[in-house]
Design a protein around this nucleic acid. Structure first.
Length: 456
RNA sequence: GCGACUAUGGUGUAAUGGCUAGCACAGGGGAUUGUGGAUCCCCUGGACAGGGUUCGAAUCCCUGUAGUCGCCCCA
């Protein structure tokens, strides 16, 4: 019956006035773009926890924040991340700006940071230069759980030192980040050496696989062409024997890289950062050299972990030079906030929430007028105060206060307004006291100072 | 970019191709005209979109869209 009514109405409203939605007809709501998401209020405590932890930590380790633009020239990423990488080849939001320049929404932060380092002459500052950022990145990926077209990264970069202790401390920062968020993680470590040693290794690896051409899977044959190091990731049963007998990259490292890597590991042992060697770990960005690492949950096994990498990073000693700067070593990481939040939820981490200390409930028009001002006074006195002015009934306001788990509610009714008083209600015991309204701010302040109200 | 699966109020779900699409939670209102966290009552609100098959479609088919899983790759 209702449906029929609606239909009738819409039939009648044939000639809607310009600028008005046709009556009775449903207007379709524009929807979220594929791979994008809204972070709803309920989720914000997780995000706040992650962001404030990241920022606190970065500052504790003397990193300075850098703000980087969303749009960069396409050329920046082609030259740094690499033309043949998946990120550049098929995952960039790239377009021409109105002036005809080729620009992209940055797919990652390191290249931007390196560009800024060169562009602002940071190589003439005291080295090393340590920078951090928490910014969204964009990749035109096929979306999946924990994989979005816009995702946030906590990034940290150190330019101007190739000391192994830099790598180790960076990894320690990443490790501490997760630890402080209540997540038990393990760092998967590898070294891919210099360009030369890596090239030499690839030749050997390809030769090895060519010798077993007839037993390896189709995927691996393709990988040999495109990205040989990836064959070591293959899960195909038939490839396992070939994989097991394949040469290891660590054996092909030049002496300096090998020594560098050993030092990094020693430092990590020293600070007690949990890591495992991952000889198959290679990263999909061209600028990496020597140390590379990924972060996964400690209880995820090697196979399962591949899909849920929380973060990754490594050394990029040639990057600055590639971008036209004076040769300068560097090292950094990017940690995915969405995946971190997802892991926190999975593991039942309870993020800290700030609950207001008092709730102000005015009743009636006169009280509301006074209440609006009192709210300002409480807030200016540094008291976390909440309200639900949108509701008039006391019952509804107390319900709201209860939902917020506020320890005290201030009730201001008509009678109190006339008397110049206000009621302070203890929400746990239900006890109420009536006090002079002029003194209430001071009284609440005192209660707050005494920690007279649990949650802190 | 490839393959597979899924799609019912805000959320979680139910219904041999057949009656007004049911239930729980959340939300709004009330029982209590100024007292929350318990209970009870009432209400709001839904078939992803578009086609097709059929007397009849939430249910079957197609296309699109979105999500999820695997591949690729990554945070």
């Amino acid at each position: 019956m209702k449906k029929a009514e609606v239909k009738e109405e819409s039939a009648k409203a044939e000639a809607p006035k310009a600028g008005e939605a046709p009556a009775g007809k449903r207007v379709k709501t524009p929807q979220l773009l594929r791979g994008f998401r809204d972070v709803l209020p309920e989720e914000q405590s997780f995000w706040d926890f992650a962001r404030t932890t990241a920022e606190k930590l970065a500052r504790a380790y003397s990193f300075d924040r850098i703000g980087l633009p969303l749009l960069e020239s396409q050329d920046l990423f082609i030259r740094s991340v690499g033309k043949a990488t998946d990120i550049v080849e098929k995952e960039m939001f790239a377009f021409e700006d109105p002036g005809g320049d080729k620009v992209v929404m940055r797919p990652e932060g390191t290249a931007s940071a390196a560009r800024a380092y060169i562009e602002h002459g940071m190589l003439d500052r005291p080295q090393p230069v340590k920078l951090f950022y928490i910014e969204p990145m964009f990749r035109y990926d096929r979306p999946q759980a924990g994989r979005y077209r816009q995702h946030y990264q906590f990034g940290a970069e150190v330019f101007g030192s190739e000391e192994a202790i830099i790598d180790a401390q960076l990894i320690t920062v990443a490790h501490s980040f997760y630890k402080e968020l209540g997540l038990d993680v393990v760092m998967r470590m590898n070294s891919i050496g210099t360009n030369e040693s890596r090239t030499a290794y690839k030749v050997e690896l390809v030769a090895h696989y060519r010798r077993h051409r007839n037993t390896i899977c189709e995927d691996c044959k393709r990988r040999l062409q495109k990205n040989p190091l990836r064959v070591l990731d293959c899960k195909e049963e038939s490839c396992q024997p070939v994989k097991a007998s394949a040469p290891q990259i660590l054996d092909y490292l030049d002496d300096a890289s090998k020594e560098h890597f050993m030092k990094v590991l020693e430092y990590l042992d020293e600070v007690g950062v949990k890591y495992v060697l991952s000889p198959h770990l290679v990263r999909g960005l061209d600028y990496y050299s020597r140390t590379v690492f990924e972060v996964t949950l400690a209880d995820a096994d090697e196979e399962a972990a591949r899909g849920t990498v929380l973060g990754g990073g490594g050394r990029y000693d040639a990057l600055i030079e590639t971008l036209g700067g004076r040769p300068t070593p560097g090292c950094g990481f990017g940690l995915g906030i969405e995946r971190t939040v997802m892991a926190m939820k999975d593991k039942g981490v309870v993020p800290p929430v700030v609950t207001p200390f008092v709730f102000l409930a005015p009743l009636g028009d006169g009280a509301r007028r006074k209440g609006l001002l009192l709210f300002e006074q409480l807030r200016q006195a540094g008291i976390p105060v909440a309200e639900c002015f949108g509701k008039a009934a006391l019952k509804a306001q107390l319900e709201a206060a209860d939902r917020m788990k506020v320890p005290h509610t201030l009730i201001l009714g008509q009678k109190e307004v006339l008397d110049g008083t206000i009621i302070i209600r203890d929400m746990e015991s239900g006890a109420q006291e009536t006090v002079d309204i002029g003194k209430v701010v001071g009284i609440i302040q005192k209660k707050l100072a005494n920690g007279n109200g649990k949650s802190e």
